[in-house]
Write a protein that binds this DNA or RNA. Structure first.
Length: 446
RNA sequence: GUGGCCGUAGCUCAGCUGGUAGAGCACUGGAUUGUGGCUCCAGGUGUCGCGGGUUCGAACCCCGUCGGUCACCCCA
């Protein structure tokens, strides 16, 4: 019998790692909140045609990477990206009728049936956002600057922003024609892949990694040359705003992205090249001023981006939390366990994370466990303490220990933890029916 | 999806031209009948990814397969 295992490219995240995930997610939620974005949650499963129409028939994602299937006659697909669902929800709920500008963020798993690699998985998570109803370049600049700030908070080294403009649909069509005209005479020198692309998706030849392709593309006309006046002004204003913000970026006229819906501003943010190798794109985004209309909604301009959470985690130097609990209750002997459970319940009522070691093992092994859990305080309850109505409060970091009366012990522990920098919730009642889970001392919610 | 490399204890790896397996770390216990992180001592049968083949004999060679990884395609 073959052992049960997770699907290729779909990974478990064990608790040791979840701490880092949560840290990044909370930081993101906070950044979003500070910028007036509100969270959107959409289904993981959508009608396949939504993605086909949003991203384009000829895109690789649609052609070969979607988990698409039929269920009772419906064509369904696991979402390969977040924008299509967000736009669908925006249209479906007539949101444009209620609010002129909408800022939404989302976080969650996406699915693409690609060959896994470091930082690229079949189920992966994206942190994304969309702004509907603001076509100004200032909005583009704000988003880019916000993302750079976010990556800085994540301590991602080597962050660089690359910007390009794809222009509107007309400009792109004009450019496509010019590019094909320029490259066709050189077709024989192109890679086989690019010769095929010449008819299917010529823009992609621009960011080919093949040397011959690069040489051929070297002198090609650039998109920026064929932009119309409005597109040019948009780009110029974006650059002005970025310069004013002091956000470093570079213009790469060869930057092209794989989805058809982009218009005008297109950007990528890369970082941590040494850790991510070829897949160092951390965030990709851009404007999609016609997509809402193309999907049957009103003519509302929009811009969005998505960041790969797994890549951010590889790139980020942030560490996860080191402690699981603040305190460990160490009862010695069977009689002490019941008393220990009471002490623990009282601690939790004050927002102290704690665990009771009910194994009945030696004090030594309980202290070892306290160490492993990162507990600062150990409350020792043996026969002598119970007889005296007391408890030993041991501070592992301070190497101190004192005998405290039971009714004073909770206050002493709280004081010690607060003195050590732990923030503790305001007291709540701790009973079986009125119990509030202690929040972790982790940061981040504003 | 295409190609290269890799796959030995929980982790990182060693294992000489094929003679059937080891280290460090981690973990558990003890030294200290109730006191951790340091130190010392003790504790390992693990489908050598899986299946098949060659051989007297395979962790080591061959084929297939699964998984990982890197690059490409593409993308977050």
């Amino acid at each position: 019998m073959t052992p049960l295992r997770a699907i290729k490219g779909m990974n478990d995240v064990l608790p040791d790692q979840v701490g880092r995930w949560q840290r990044v997610e909370r930081l993101y939620a906070r950044v979003m909140s500070l910028h007036g974005f509100r969270e959107l949650r959409t289904p993981l499963l959508e009608p396949t045609p939504l993605f086909v129409r949003a991203m384009g028939e000829a895109t690789d994602v649609v052609e070969k990477e979607m988990y698409a299937f039929e269920h009772h006659g419906d064509a369904l697909a696991l979402r390969p990206e977040g924008t299509a669902g967000a736009v669908r929800a925006y249209i479906e709920h007539s949101v444009s009728q209620r609010e002129p500008i909408v800022r939404w963020w989302y976080a969650g798993p996406m699915f693409r049936a690609e060959r896994p690699q470091r930082g690229r998985y079949r189920q992966f998570s994206q942190l994304g956002a969309e702004v509907f109803g603001d076509e100004g370049p200032g909005c583009d600049a704000e988003i880019i600057d916000m993302l750079v700030g976010f990556l800085r908070e994540l301590q991602v080294p080597g962050v660089e922003v690359v910007v390009n403009s794809l222009g509107g649909a007309e400009a792109r069509a004009r450019y496509r024609a010019a590019l094909v005209e320029y490259l066709t005479p050189k077709a024989s020198s192109l890679s086989a892949e690019s010769q095929r692309r010449l008819t299917t998706n010529p823009l992609r030849i621009l960011d080919s990694k093949d040397d011959a392709d690069r040489a051929a593309a070297q002198g090609a006309p650039t998109l920026i040359d064929v932009l119309d006046a409005g597109d040019r002004e948009h780009l110029a204003k974006l650059r002005e705003a970025l310069d004013a913000l002091g956000t470093p970026y570079s213009i790469d006229p060869h930057l092209v992205r794989g989805l058809d819906y982009y218009t005008r501003t297109l950007f990528e943010i890369r970082g941590a090249h040494d850790k991510l190798g070829a897949g160092s794109t951390l965030v990709g985004g851009g404007r999609y001023d016609t997509l809402v209309k193309d999907l049957g909604g009103p003519a509302v301009p929009a811009i969005g981006f998505a960041a790969g959470l797994e890549r951010l985690l590889i790139a980020s130097d942030l560490e996860g939390p080191s402690s699981v609990v603040d305190a460990l209750v160490a009862p010695l002997g069977a009689k002490a366990v019941a008393a220990g459970l009471q002490v623990a319940r009282d601690l939790r009522g004050k927002g102290i994370r704690c665990e009771v070691d009910t194994r009945g093992t030696s004090l030594k092994s309980q202290l070892r466990r306290a160490n492993a859990l990162g507990a600062r305080i150990v409350l020792i309850l043996g026969d002598a303490e119970i007889a005296a109505g007391a408890v030993q409060v041991k501070d592992l970091a301070a190497h101190s220990q004192e005998t405290i009366q039971r009714d004073q012990a909770i206050r002493v522990v709280v004081d010690r933890l607060i003195a050590a920098g732990r923030t503790v919730d305001s007291p709540v009642k701790a009973s079986a029916t009125d119990y509030t889970a202690p929040t972790t001392p982790e940061e981040d919610t504003p």
